[in-house]
Amino acid sequence: MTTSCSTRASPARTVQGRVAEQDEEIGRRIEAALRAQHLPVEWNGSSQQRISVGPLTWQRRLPA
């Protein structure tokens, strides 16, 4: 009796990997857009972590 071991990823794992890559690309775009507005951003680049924005100092505009 012989057993074979496949090194190919299962279809579900491959799809999850692609989704994670797409999520991370979207995260990089969001991070870049926030930084372009000079907002403080913390994110490790993982699709498993939320993007943190802040701390922010709210400044209400004076009436014109």
Rank of each mutant, 00 (worst) to 15 (best):
V15A: 13
V15R: 11
R13L: 05
R28I: 05
I26A: 15
R13G: 01
R50E: 12
R60M: 06
R60T: 09
T57M: 01
R61C: 00
E24F: 06
I26F: 13
R35C: 07
V19M: 13
P11I: 03
D23Y: 07
P55R: 05
P63H: 05
I51P: 03
E31Q: 11
P63F: 01
N44V: 01
R60S: 07
T3M: 06
A32Q: 13
A33E: 14
Q37H: 14
Q48W: 04
G27P: 02
E31D: 12
E21N: 11
D23C: 12
I30W: 08
I51V: 14
L56D: 04
V15H: 08
R28P: 05
H38S: 15
W43A: 02
T57R: 11
A64N: 01
G17D: 12
V53M: 08
R35A: 04
G27A: 14
E24M: 12
R60Y: 00
M1G: 15
W43D: 06
G17A: 11
L39Y: 12
W43F: 03
E25L: 15
R18W: 10
Q37T: 05
V15F: 06
V41H: 04
R8L: 10
P63N: 07
Q22N: 10
R29Y: 05
A33L: 14
Q49Y: 02
L56Y: 02
I51M: 06
L39V: 06
R28F: 03
S52V: 14
L62E: 09
R35K: 15
E42N: 08
Q37L: 15
L34D: 11
R61G: 00
S46Y: 01
D23Q: 14
R8M: 06
E42F: 03
R18M: 10
A20H: 10
S52R: 12
E21S: 14
A20C: 08
Q16V: 03
S6K: 06
G45I: 03
A32E: 12
G45P: 04
S6G: 08
P63W: 01
R50Y: 01
